[in-house]
Design a protein around this nucleic acid. Sequence first.
DNA 1: CAAAATCTCTATCTGCAGATAGAGATTTTG
DNA 2: CAAAATCTCTATCTGCAGATAGAGATTTTG
Lengths: 223, 223
Amino acid sequence: MPPGEKIKVLLADDQTMIRQGFGYVIGLQADMMLVGEAFDGKEAVDMAIASQPDVVLMDIQMPRMTGIEATQAIMARLPATKIVILTTFDDQEYIVQGIRAGAVGYLLKDAEVEDMLEAVRSAFRGEAVYRTGLAAHALSKVVSASYIAPGAAPKPLVLEPLTEREQEILQEMAYGLRNDQIAQKLVISEGTVKSHVHRILQKFGCEDRTQVVVTALRNGLVK
Amino acid sequence: MPPGEKIKVLLADDQTMIRQGFGYVIGLQADMMLVGEAFDGKEAVDMAIASQPDVVLMDIQMPRMTGIEATQAIMARLPATKIVILTTFDDQEYIVQGIRAGAVGYLLKDAEVEDMLEAVRSAFRGEAVYRTGLAAHALSKVVSASYIAPGAAPKPLVLEPLTEREQEILQEMAYGLRNDQIAQKLVISEGTVKSHVHRILQKFGCEDRTQVVVTALRNGLVK
DNA sequence: CAAAATCTCTATCTGCAGATAGAGATTTTG
DNA sequence: CAAAATCTCTATCTGCAGATAGAGATTTTG
């Protein structure tokens, strides 16, 4: 990547630790530059408009204006901005809201640094980011486990976003329901459930529902 | 249960909150009596020998002597004692050690009071206790979900203990492996894997591997 | 040491899961 | 408003999962 084409990253988080930690690492990257550090949602919006970042790492819980609101505000003005929600294990309920507000995905705050960096690059490339920190280790096992074939590279942990219906069906799968039970519960045909399940498997890059459910549970994508 | 045949319970935990909370409730039960409250492992052993409890609720993280060591010491002297490990979400790695040391199962500290009481009664009846607090809610969904049939009572969350091999296979299942992959990994035949899986399904009272894996993950029975 | 538990294996059978290949209806988005 | 995405459905086919019923070998336990 030639100079001058660095990925412009804005970091919005009220925790100094996170800002300094992630911010420092971003500054070290050859292909990234930190264009601002905001400590609340309001400031994040102002800085985004001023610096026009490619990617924003956006905390949810912030003073004055939440990350959700800031995401909406930024998307309204700068729709090309890729916003990645930063969450803790506890506020996963806001992830859906964040994505509805226009975020491309989320990242757990205890993510490994390399995960964070790859999330930024994925977001920049226009891919959705559903990547965790906590479960990254467990997940890499699942992934490698399902790809024992020699030479197979570990699959990137990036998903196409699920549609609402797919999310619903994924949740039922994670309750241990069979396809026919899901069909009954959602009042659709079993064939339709199979269609959705098929798409979900594809998006997860998994071979069967057990792998999907494991991945979803370990990544907090379902209750 | 006639008077004089109350379940004698010993409570060992260094947290006063837990001792007082659980201890108080145990004292209220018609079929239980609290024969002691220990605040560390050493005291737990001494009090167990003195009061010969039927059931011990044993914390893992305690001063002077850990719950694991105390469990071993008590089992060596009073092998009929039923010891239930008390854990937090964080020290689940010790559960296996506790069970190897002779505990009949475990209970998460944030368990509902009724769960705790039923754990004590289950343990007293000689049943293994693999019951959580945290995941009880999610699990009850799984259980009820797999038992939509009208009139079906929700299954008690008590498992026969898994053998070592079954635990190993459960772990592989939770990594998303198919039966033939597990067979390859453990160097046994696929048929043998199916035998173990069948037993695991029976012990969990589940209908398929997805339900088992969901239950195991939500209850911290696997990594 | 004998009994019980555990681990292993074989073999057959049914059924659900998932792949594949559309295609129409509805909703969302530019 | 037109295009794209989403949700729904049908239908067929293969294969793995799991049930069932043993049974021998080994290890653990009283």
